[in-house]
């Protein structure tokens, strides 16, 4: 598997930025608050427009049609997309409809939510909700992950588990693009610095 992007955004946020992500690579987008880290991610995923530049995926130009890119990625944003009316398990099931019940529960155990599988998300804390969303990482077969501040509201154990899962994913040839303010403990990313 080979992932390659070239992007030259000519927005106010970043000018003439070029970078690529290869299989097995962890890329960290760094920069101060407001430097446009999330915006960069959103424009790669195609819901912010960039004025100039091209985006390639597996050697094909996907600047105009992101479908191929979207079908091969998993994105977790600032707000995790967890519904209050559903239980943890139901939330996970919405995003991973094909997974077996056991696998879903196993994924929740991985993020220390095994005991909360049938608790409505409304009763869970922000960190717990985020962990429901993160549990998708244990169920997915998507090669490319976009994680926007995934460590926010996570406790030490949660961070550890997530880093472990990330390194597993990288070792089987996946690729990860991440933004975070926290230092990564055991992983060494390639850093892209955005100026404010």
């Amino acid at each position: 598997m080979k992932d390659l992007w070239i992007e030259r955004g000519e927005r106010d946020l970043c000018r003439h930025l070029t970078f690529s992500v290869q299989s097995g690579e962890l890329v960290r987008i760094a920069g101060e608050n407001g430097a446009g880290k999330s915006s960069l991610m959103k424009s790669i995923l195609g819901w912010l427009h960039f004025a100039e530049g091209t985006l390639e995926f597996n050697g094909e130009d996907v600047t105009q049609h992101r479908d191929m890119l979207l079908q091969n990625q998993l994105y977790l944003g600032h707000t995790p997309g967890i519904k209050n009316v559903f239980t943890a398990l139901e939330n996970l099931k919405l995003y991973c409809p094909d997974a077996a019940e056991d696998d879903l529960e196993q994924a929740l155990v991985q993020v220390q939510l095994g005991a909360f599988a049938d608790t409505p998300a409304a009763q869970l804390s922000a960190g717990q909700k985020r962990r429901i969303a993160l549990a998708r990482l244990w169920l997915t077969d998507k090669a490319l992950w976009f994680l926007d501040e995934p460590f926010t509201a996570l406790d030490v154990k949660g961070v550890e588990a997530l880093e472990k899962r990330m390194s597993e994913h990288l070792s089987v040839g996946g690729a990860i693009v991440i933004t975070t303010h926290q230092p990564l403990l055991n992983l060494s990313p390639k850093v892209i610095e955005l100026a404010a």
């Binding site: 995923l45 819901w47 979207l70 994105y75 707000t79």
Partner: peptide, 16 residues
């Protein structure tokens, strides 16, 4: 409204 606030709409956009 709720989909917007809890991030579900973002997931719509990237769902493929």
């Amino acid at each position: 409204k709720e989909d917007y606030n809890d991030g579900s709409l973002e997931q719509w956009l990237v769902s493929g």
